[in-house]
Amino acid sequence: MKTDIKLSGVGGQGILSIATVIGQAATASGINLKQAEVHGMSQRGGDVQSDLRLSTEEIFSDQIPLGGADLIISMEPMEALRYLPYLSADGVIVTSSKPFVNIPNYPDENALMEELGRYTVHSLDIENIALSIQAPKSANMVLLGMAAKYIGIISEQDLKEAIRAVFSRKGEKVVEDNIKAFEKGYESIQ
């Protein structure tokens, strides 16, 4: 059994925290994992992506092949579309619906959302949801909650345990905010 996930977003949006939580959950439950990140210049407001591969078998390549991703998790709608050639035939896109516009030639938003809508996509204004539960910094955990249903190889419960483990050093309030955000996201996909 395997789940290949493409994580995407804009530098600074927190996609690596999502990767850390999934990585923690995978390690705790004895699932093999490889997670390739891009560091360096691309952090500065540019596009960032990470390949996350989970499997009960040995994983060789650090990168996901074209057409291989079971899931695209994106903090930004255009960045979700960027990795379309990596999505598998029955792959799912889980994304924030709110564009992050820091370039002059950002595409027309209606056209963008229309194009996204042609695929199996779950999009929500995750920042707004995070705000509504007074956890503005936990938008990425709302997104992870939305994606949880599709990360078949790891249970929802294991992901929550991982959130506790990853954020525990930042205090109980941060842990609770993130768990609440995760649950909000998870509930939205029932």
Partner: peptide, 13 residues
């Protein structure tokens, strides 16, 4: 084995 072609509504960032 790409299933879907490159998207239309994307710009370099």
């Amino acid at each position: 084995s790409a299933v879907y072609q490159k998207a239309v509504n994307i710009s370099p960032r």
